[in-house]
Amino acid sequence: MNGILIAMIGALLLPIYEAWQDEDIWQKMLAFASIATKTSIMILVVSVLRDDWMIGVVGVLILSVGNAALMLLAHILRRLNEG
């Protein structure tokens, strides 16, 4: 389990690097979407690893609220680009 978690942290570093390095706003949005999903899955894995399901409930809640904010932001950006 520990190995899997370390690999996941490694995978998380890639979109973080991309979000920092790329100037284009849509590429940044993609990277942020990826970060959001990956961290919430990691919360679930950590909750199993520590055998503490309270953490897991938080992860499930984050997943079911979803990336609503990112979708809203995408629509705002589209309006800005149009105008």
Binding site: D24, I25, W26, M29, L30, A33, L70, A74, H75, L77, R78, R79, L80, N81, E82
Partner: peptide
């Protein structure tokens, strides 16, 4: 994301 990035240009 696909819809917004293709509609707004760029």
């Amino acid at each position: 994301l696909a819809y917004c990035s293709s509609q707004g240009g760029g």
